[in-house]
Simulated scan of single mutants.
Amino acid sequence: MVEAARNAFAEKGFHGTTTRDIASAAGMSPAAVYVHHPTKESLLFQISEHGHRAILDSIRAAVDEHETPTDQLRALVWTFAQRHAAHHTSARIVYYEAAALTPEHRAQTDALATEISEVVLGVLRAGIAAGEFSCDDVALAGRSIAGMGVDVARWYDDTGSWTPEQIADHQAQTALRMVGAG
């Protein structure tokens, strides 16, 4: 059912999707949707929460696998960009349908987004402290790097000429240049 909701939200947007659309795509009756999820918004929240947690877990793992801030940033940005390209449909929903979440659910996903930002900022601060990075405004650099990765979900196309890995390689190198890594 979650996959059916994801596909319907991707095709029609949250507000353009009905529970009947979701049920039809899942091969169920409309009433069956409410057996599993109390509202259409709860499906959106499940998709959003899963997307944020997947990114958070993957970038934390990428950072933990490397010792130097330069290698950590390269791995973090590579992972962030690659996941946003490989899972662009879900990522678009997470970022562009967030306004449809209830205030409580939005606060929960915003808290996860803050954790993601803190991982990025932590690596940048460590790089500055180690003398590996030079940037005047860590917060702005962090937002720029994260925004670059998030935006992949908006423009990436499976039929395009770049693979998720090529995009990830490019963005990782770009991020290192942004922070003056040697």
Rank of each mutant, 00 (worst) to 15 (best):
M1A: 03
M1I: 03
V2H: 09
A4H: 12
R6S: 12
F9P: 09
A10V: 00
A10R: 02
F14V: 12
T19R: 11
A26P: 00
A31I: 05
A31M: 06
A31C: 04
Y34Q: 03
V35P: 01
E41T: 09
L43W: 08
L43I: 10
L44K: 02
I47N: 06
I55F: 00
L56N: 02
L56Q: 01
R60F: 13
D64G: 13
T68V: 07
P69V: 03
P69L: 04
P69R: 08
D71L: 05
Q72E: 13
L73E: 08
L76R: 08
L76T: 08
V77H: 02
V77M: 01
T79E: 11
T79H: 02
F80R: 01
A81I: 13
A81L: 05
R83F: 12
R83E: 15
H84T: 14
A86I: 00
T89E: 15
A91I: 07
A91Q: 15
V94C: 11
Y96R: 14
T102L: 02
P103F: 05
P103L: 05
R106E: 10
R106C: 05
Q108N: 12
Q108R: 15
T109P: 06
D110Y: 03
A111P: 04
T114R: 14
I116M: 02
E118K: 14
E118Y: 15
G122M: 00
L124E: 06
L124T: 07
G127Q: 05
G127H: 01
A129D: 15
G131L: 00
E132K: 11
E132P: 00
S134P: 01
D136M: 06
D136N: 03
D137A: 13
V138D: 06
L140P: 05
L140A: 14
R143Y: 06
I145G: 05
G147Q: 06
G149Y: 01
R154Q: 14
W155N: 11
D157S: 08
D157F: 07
T159I: 06
G160L: 00
P164E: 12
A168R: 08
H170A: 11
H170C: 01
Q171N: 14
Q173G: 15
G180C: 04
